[in-house]
Write a protein that binds this DNA or RNA. Structure first.
Lengths: 213, 213
DNA sequence: GTCTTGGGAATGAATGTTCATTCCGTGAAA
DNA sequence: TTTCACGGAATGAACATTCATTCCCAAGAC
């Protein structure tokens, strides 16, 4: 019931990156990728329940039945996307994160790495935001989420102990920062125009001043 | 197609407030209210497409057909809720708003009024957040949204001109503030515990420091 | 007072549609 | 020839909406 790889499928590997630069008919016939991409787009446009499986098939350029060769169910599909993108996000943010740096630099890195992900994968970011905490996410997907949350909570608590962040419930500060980030991202999605580097830096400076002690 | 009041219905009035303190069987038999309340709850819990009309009827304690005496369709129902709550929100935030006050006070008022609404109508606030910009909202509903947006844009631009807010795209600053507010609200919904007044004040101070020049 | 009756409110089973999922014929590869 | 990925029509379940019927009650008749 919580299987990531469908028994019938024979995926080359569970890859986490790959914007698929291949030719029209990619090597090995990457239907799986096409389905994941199409479903991501549609779930962002119409939501999970608002999207019909045959629509996904159409956009992916495959038959409706083919989806079930790769995913056990619509629910398994949305969970696969969620985990894939959440892990991708975690990679972009955490890989080689300079833990030893001072809090100011830590914060800048965090913000700019999130900005990098949100700029290069806007749809994926909105997808994660939209499906956060939904009923149809399984335990595995929630676990991925919680791991990141715990990590950040630790960082915030330590920085507070050192007097570098404002005191207050860590959840509140984190909610504030993440919320602001989402708000900024959406404000540019709504006018369909990517933020430039200067805007991201401005926003970063703003939110740093919000949380610094 | 964009009718607010359904022809067959005979609503006493289009009321915007009224938490219904009446007896069990309210005066006039307020089925309409019961339907609106039940639908609001369910749309927050499961989303628009995730909620079946008969479920709404069950929770409202009416027959499925009754819903169609008051609303033309499921879509008309969600639009009615959206407008009702958006206008309620606008009332709470804007009624007697001290426009002449200085920017710091203006901001404090804005934040605390939003906090008041979000505390007293948490479900409604989440509903508005969730259904913001959805496909099934009609032009009228969008107009309500845009009116508020324009108003705030004006306030921000003026405050920037007076050198009291950081310079930058008004949309970005507003997205940041609203996003942070939503983030703070959610952070407490997720642990199912209302924020106390001190927490709201802390958050307010944080975000003021984020946007002040 | 009791009884009757007209009409609108309310109901929930019935209807037609849409959807997730399955099934089977086809064609390419080995 | 066998195998197997594939497509898309077929299937059955769930859905939004409708409608024939019931229920309620106010107002008249007695």
């Amino acid at each position: 019931m919580a299987s990531e790889a469908h028994p019938k499928a024979r995926p080359s590997q569970t890859r986490l990156s790959s914007p698929a630069i291949g030719t029209k008919r990619a090597a090995g016939g990457d239907k799986r990728e096409a389905i994941l991409d199409a479903a991501l787009e549609l779930f962002v446009e119409r939501g999970f329940f608002g999207t019909a499986v045959p629509e996904i098939a159409d956009r992916a350029g495959v038959g409706a039945g083919t989806i079930y060769r790769y995913f056990e169910s619509k629910e398994a599909l949305v969970n696969a996307i969620y985990r894939q993108q959440k892990l991708h996000f975690a990679n972009v943010v955490l890989d080689g994160f300079p833990r030893a740096a001072n809090t100011r630099e830590l914060f800048r890195q965090l913000w700019m790495r999130m900005a990098k992900f949100a700029t290069e994968n806007t749809n994926a970011f909105i997808f994660l935001e939209l499906h956060h905490h939904q009923r149809y996410l399984d335990d595995e997907s929630r676990a991925v989420e919680n791991r990141m949350l715990d990590l950040f909570t630790g960082v915030v608590t330590q920085a507070q102990a050192r007097g570098e962040l404002k005191l207050g419930p860590p959840r509140l500060l984190m909610g504030l920062v993440m919320g602001a980030f989402v708000g900024v991202t959406r404000s540019c999605v709504e006018i369909d125009q990517a933020l430039d580097s200067a805007d991201w830096k401005l926003a970063e400076q703003c939110i740093w001043e919000a949380v610094r002690s």
